[in-house]
Amino acid sequence: MIEFKNVVKQYPNGTIGLNNINLNIKEGEFVVIVGLSGAGKSTLLRSINRLHDISSGEILVDGKSITRANGKQLRRIRRDIGMIFQSFNLVKRATVLRNVLSGRVGYHSTFSTMFGYFPKEDHDIALDALTRVNIREKAYIRADQLSGGQQQRVSIARALAQKPKVILADEPVASLDPLTTRQVMDDLQRINRELKITTIVNLHFIDLAREYATRIIGLRAGEVVFDGPVSEATDAKFSEIYGRPINEDELLAADAPKGGVTV
C-alpha cells in the first residue's frame, strides 16, 4: 500500500531527517512508529502525504508515486489519505459537522465548494463517520465546546469522511489524558479492523505501541533500526531503538493503572 524507496530527507541546514528509508507497508496493517523525539517519526509520516517534501528517493501510495505527483494528481492521492494531528487541527469556531464535511472537499470542484455547499450524500457520510466514533449527537455543536478527546474523535471522523485508504496519525494522543488516550486508540483500531484502512501512527508510549500495533517500526536518527511484529519488540529491542534503557514516562501505565481504565 505504501512503499518507501531509498527515501532521504535532508534539511536546508544539512541535517539529515530521514536516511535511506526502505519500507513496504501492506494493506490493512496497523503500524506504529516509535522513536525518541527528533528521530524523524513526524518527518516520515508527513512525507507519506507530502506535507513534507523528500530530498531523494520515491514514495508510492497505492502504486502511485506521490513524490512525482503534482497539482490535481497530488490532491487526488492526498484525498485517499486521512490525517490526524496531535493538536486536532479543527476549526474551533465551526460546528462539528462542518469540520467533518470539510474532509469531503477533495471530491468536489472548486466552484461547488466555494459557497460551502455539500450534497445530502456528504451529510450522510459525515454523520455516519461521527456515529462511528460515537459522537453523532455532537454534530451541531461548535468544535471548541468539546473536550480534547471528543475533538480528536471529530478529527478522526473528518479523516473518515474522506473515505481514505490510509490513515496517518501524528502523535494522536499526546495531548490527551490516559483515559481518552485509550478511547481514541480503540477508535483507530476498530476503524482499522472494520474498514480495513491501513493505519500508521506515531507514538511515544511504548506500551501503547505494543498493545495496538500489528507491526512496529523503530526510528533512530532518521534510520529504521527496528521493523517487525509486536512479538519481537521486546524491552531489549526498545532500549536499542532509544539508545538507552526505557524510562518510566515512556509508558502510559506510568500515568495511570492500565487495568483500572474502562472505555
Binding site: 492526498r78 485517499d80 487541527n89 476549526v91 470539510s102 472537499v105 465548494t113 466555494m114 460551502g116
Partner: peptide, 27 residues
C-alpha cells in the same frame, strides 16, 4: 489564525481556494 486547520485541509487534498473557504474564512 491557527495554522492547524490549514494543514488539515492541505492533507485532505483541498486546493488553495478550498483551503481558504474552509480553513481561513471561518477563522
Amino acid at each position: 489564525i491557527d495554522p492547524g486547520p490549514l494543514e488539515a485541509m492541505t492533507a485532505s487534498g483541498a486546493n488553495k481556494i478550498q483551503l481558504i473557504v474552509f480553513g481561513v474564512i471561518p477563522q
